[in-house]
Structure formats: C-alpha cells, structure tokens
Amino acid sequence: MPTVLRFEAYRFYFYSHEPNEPPHIHIDRDNLSAKFWLSPICLAKNIGFNAKELRKIESLVESNQQNFLEVWYEYFDNSN
C-alpha cells in the first residue's frame, strides 16, 4: 500500500493490488476515507468526509495530480 503523500492529517495512497482499475488515489484521515479518479479528477467514493473537506481534498488531488499519475504508472509498470 504505497503512500504517495502525507499532508496535514491526510494520507494519500493506493493499493498495490488494484492495477486493473484506472489511476486513482485513496485518502484517509482518522476513520474517514475517500477515493478520487485521477484522469479526469472525479470523486469515486466517500466514507464520512463532509462537502467542505471533500473540496479541500479535491484541491489537493488537483495540485498533486501529475505526481500521483507518475507514481501510479511507475509503480504498476514495474510490478508487471
């Protein structure tokens, strides 16, 4: 479960067993969780975050999108 970024209380990561899904990033804080598709950026799943916090997370995903995509493709290209 590679962690790509830690920012404030958020952890951005992906699961190493999800190579057949489109690129995405999971975000956790405490017992809350969300998943965003990376291209285009779109909320895929939310467990507990309110709308205001989701907008903040989406903004963080947008500002780190290129890095997240690079790490995603590097990891899964090398794991085959």
Rank of each mutant, 00 (worst) to 15 (best):
G48R: 11
E58S: 14
G48W: 12
Y75Q: 01
Q66D: 12
S63Q: 14
A44V: 04
H24F: 00
N20Q: 09
P19Q: 05
V61I: 13
Y15S: 03
F68R: 05
E53N: 11
L43C: 11
K56F: 15
I27L: 05
K35I: 14
N67I: 07
F68D: 03
S39Y: 02
I27V: 15
R6F: 01
S33Y: 13
K56I: 14
M1G: 06
F12T: 00
L38Y: 05
N78Y: 00
Y75V: 00
W37A: 11
K56D: 12
I25W: 03
C42Q: 15
E62S: 11
S59P: 05
F68T: 05
N67W: 07
S39W: 00
N50F: 13
F14T: 00
I57A: 10
N80I: 07
E21I: 01
N80C: 04
S63I: 13
W72L: 01
P19R: 08
I41Y: 06
M1H: 06
L32G: 02
C42S: 14
Y10K: 01
W37G: 07
V4F: 05
E70R: 10
L54D: 13
K45C: 10
P19K: 08
I57R: 10
V61N: 09
V61W: 08
P23S: 02
L32S: 11
D30S: 10
H26L: 03
I27E: 04
S39Q: 12
F7R: 06
C42W: 06
Y15N: 07
I47R: 15
N46I: 13
F76I: 03
W72F: 01
N46Y: 13
L38F: 05
F7Y: 13
S33K: 14
E62V: 10
S63T: 14
R11T: 13
P23W: 01
Q66E: 14
S16P: 00
S63M: 13
S79L: 09
Y15F: 12
S39R: 08
Q66G: 07
G48C: 12
N64H: 14
Q65C: 11
R29E: 12
P19G: 05
P40F: 05
K52C: 11
T3L: 04
L32D: 10
I27Y: 06
L43S: 09
N67T: 12
N31Y: 09
I25V: 14
N67F: 14
E70L: 08
F14A: 01
F76G: 02
E58L: 12
T3D: 03
R55S: 15
L5H: 02
L69R: 04
E70F: 06
N78H: 06
A9N: 10
G48M: 11
R11G: 00
V61C: 08
N67V: 07
N78V: 00
L32A: 11
H24K: 05
V71A: 05
T3Y: 00
N50R: 13
V61T: 10
P19S: 08
S79I: 03
T3C: 03
Y10F: 15
N80W: 03
L54N: 12
W72D: 05
Y75F: 15
E58V: 09
S16F: 01
V4A: 07
F36D: 07
R55G: 09
Y10R: 02
N80R: 13
I41E: 07
Y13V: 00
S59R: 15
